[in-house]
Amino acid sequence: MSIPIQENQIVQYIKELVSIPSPSGYTEEVISHAVSFMEKLGVSYEITRKGALLATIKGKDDTKHRLLTAHVDTLGAMVKEIKGDGRLKLTMVGGFRWNSVEGEYCKIHTADGKAYTGTILIHQTSVHVYKNAEEVKRDDDHIEVRVDETVKSKEDAEKLGISVGDFVSFEPRFEVSDSGFVKSRHLDDKASVGILMHLIQVMKEENITLPYTTHFLISNNEEIGYGGNSNIPAETVEYLAVDMGAIGDGQATDEYTVSICAKDSSGPYHYKLRQHLVELAKANDIGYKVDIYPFYGSDASAAIRAGYDIVHGLIGPGIDASHAFERTHVSALKHTAHLLWHYLRSSMIE
């Protein structure tokens, strides 16, 4: 049968997801968005104690299960300190560099539900005042948030309800170019979540029965290392993380294909599952690259570290400038969706 995958629908899901602020630890709204999606399609699900969503589609074989995961939590920050002039010092949530968010618009999410806008800057931004502005180190001591309110003191900021521990999210600035590039923060990993959502939609609308009961874990703590390390049903044999492919010098991954990970900082992924994915790609004209990510970890590697006896793998669309100004191409989304489509309908490896 022809594959009823629509890239424009995947892009729309990604746009909706990145518009919802969800730094790790602040993911209730985006998980609620995923819940509404599952309920609309009639997909059974549960919410874990850690706040993730585990959706299940029953297959022909209910004795052996598959689990696919992608994460909706993103990079972000927290208010570390309110300075005397009312500006905010930050502490990172997730692994990135301050220079990658310098000049970015952001939102400060207060405990009483308000959201104030601001801009992330180094303290010595003005070249008309600070002669050494370009030499200042981008670190916790020099990066701050300029709040878009009349704030002249610590007391002014506190009167707004801003306090230490408030989450700070980064504006995504989502765009799709005429040439098919998708530009946005947080494509890691909302691009993959959008792909899984579309596949679930297609399977439900086309009344497709999968060969095995399959779970879809929308995890919410991956950026801090433990998103997918629990709530894995005991019948799970194969566990496939769907997360971005990292691009850079020495990497095979590009923005136009699906990346199949052979090894990351946690060690090799399951060889037979990797080869199964490669064979599916070759047999179905799917553009792919096999790659190694030296400074990377996934929900699948977190599950292995937690002691689960599973076959684990990792694939995802190639994404440029990871943990910074991210970009991919619709062709990478398409190839990833097609590989997942064929994987979900394939037999388990022996």
Rank of each mutant, 00 (worst) to 15 (best):
V11C: 05
E16L: 12
S19A: 14
P21T: 06
P21W: 03
S24Q: 00
Y26C: 02
V35M: 07
F37K: 06
M38W: 06
E39Y: 05
K40H: 13
V43Q: 09
S44Q: 14
E46R: 14
E46V: 13
R49N: 11
A52F: 00
K58L: 15
H65F: 13
T74F: 01
G86E: 00
L88G: 06
K89G: 14
L90H: 03
E104T: 13
Y105P: 13
I108W: 04
I108A: 07
G113S: 10
G113T: 10
L121I: 13
E135L: 14
D139T: 13
I143D: 02
D148V: 13
E149D: 11
D156G: 05
E158D: 06
G161R: 07
G165L: 05
F167P: 10
E171R: 14
R173P: 14
F174K: 07
F174T: 08
E175W: 11
E175F: 15
A191W: 03
S192F: 05
M197C: 07
M197H: 06
M197S: 06
H198L: 02
L199R: 09
Q201T: 13
I208Y: 07
P211T: 03
T214P: 02
I218M: 05
N220Q: 05
N220H: 04
V237R: 14
L240K: 00
G248W: 02
T253V: 07
E255I: 14
K263C: 11
P268G: 08
R274M: 13
R274S: 10
V278H: 05
A283D: 11
N284A: 08
Y293G: 02
P294I: 11
Y296K: 09
A306C: 01
D309I: 11
G316V: 03
A324N: 13
A324T: 10
A324E: 09
E326D: 04
V330A: 11
A337D: 03
E350P: 15
